[in-house]
Amino acid sequence: MGSSTSGVITELQRNSNSWTKVVDEIVKMERKIFPKHESLARHFDEELKKKNSGMLYIHMDGQVVGYVMYSWPSSLSASITKLAVKESDRRQGHGEALLKGAIEKCRTRKVQRISLHVDPTRNAAMNLYKKFGFQVDDLIQGYYSPDRPAYRMYLDFDSN
């Protein structure tokens, strides 16, 4: 899987030598980017050890600059649970490369739908998902916190 930038997309393997280093870098990113109650920092290891979940990350100049987590709880649907790019590395195609990679990974599992949740005020994220064909399904009140809703978005695949 290539990317439009000089970063390399890698799938995090549970038994890899770089597991601890990569997870540590991602946990630091999580803490910087997301409010405490939205951050998976404390539960990252558990999340990634779940059977039907995966993660791709982009490595550049020896650092993780972005990552995407996804899961496929059933044969019908998958979800993108987290997509983040370091602030200093945004607007360079990393988010797009990661999203594309996650969609491909989900497709290989023959799921019919991928869903995700996004903060309606995050325009860059909204535009990225729409570019890939995601559609807004519903506004979920209080998704992130009592005063922060989320759009539930989905992408359906043809059943061929």
Results as ranks from 00 to 15, higher is better:
E11I: 10
L116Y: 05
V64P: 01
S79T: 10
V22I: 14
Y151H: 10
I58L: 13
S6Y: 00
R152H: 14
S71C: 02
A150V: 05
L99D: 02
G142V: 11
S88P: 03
H59L: 15
K49L: 03
A97M: 10
H43Q: 07
P120I: 02
G95F: 02
S77I: 14
Q141G: 07
G62V: 15
E46R: 00
Y144E: 00
N160L: 12
Q135T: 12
S79C: 09
P35G: 12
A125L: 00
K110D: 13
Y67W: 11
K110I: 06
A84D: 04
G95L: 12
V64Y: 13
K86D: 13
Y144T: 00
L12S: 04
N123G: 01
S115I: 12
G142L: 10
R122K: 03
C106L: 08
M29R: 08
M29Q: 14
F44C: 12
L48Q: 00
V136Q: 12
D45A: 05
Y129R: 07
R31I: 15
D119N: 13
F132M: 10
K28L: 14
K32C: 14
F157D: 06
Y70L: 07
S18M: 11
M126D: 06
P35R: 05
E104S: 08
D156C: 11
M126C: 12
L76G: 01
S74D: 11
L116P: 10
R109I: 03
S53L: 02
S16T: 04
T121G: 01
M60E: 14
N15H: 12
G101S: 10
G54H: 01
E46L: 04
F34E: 12
M126V: 11
E25M: 13
K21C: 13
N160S: 04
E104C: 08
Q135K: 15
K50V: 01
L116E: 02
V8H: 09
Y129P: 00
A78W: 07
H43L: 02
D24P: 04
A125Y: 05
G133S: 08
L56C: 06
Y144W: 00
D158Q: 09
M29D: 12
R31M: 15
R91D: 11
R152D: 09
K82L: 06
A150Q: 05
E104M: 02
F34G: 02
C106D: 02
L98I: 06
Y57G: 03
L76Q: 07
K105P: 00
R31D: 15
L155F: 15
R113F: 07
T121D: 12
H59W: 15
I33G: 04
V22G: 08
H94R: 05
I140V: 15
V8T: 08
L83M: 06
D24A: 08
S3D: 12
G54K: 01
V22S: 04
R107S: 03
V27T: 09
T20Y: 11
P35F: 15
P35T: 15
K86Q: 14
K105G: 01
S39P: 10
G93I: 07
Y129E: 09
T10G: 03
E38S: 05
N15I: 04
T20P: 10
M126E: 09
M55H: 05
E47I: 02
V118P: 03
N127Q: 13
V136D: 11
W19H: 06
D89C: 15
A125Q: 03
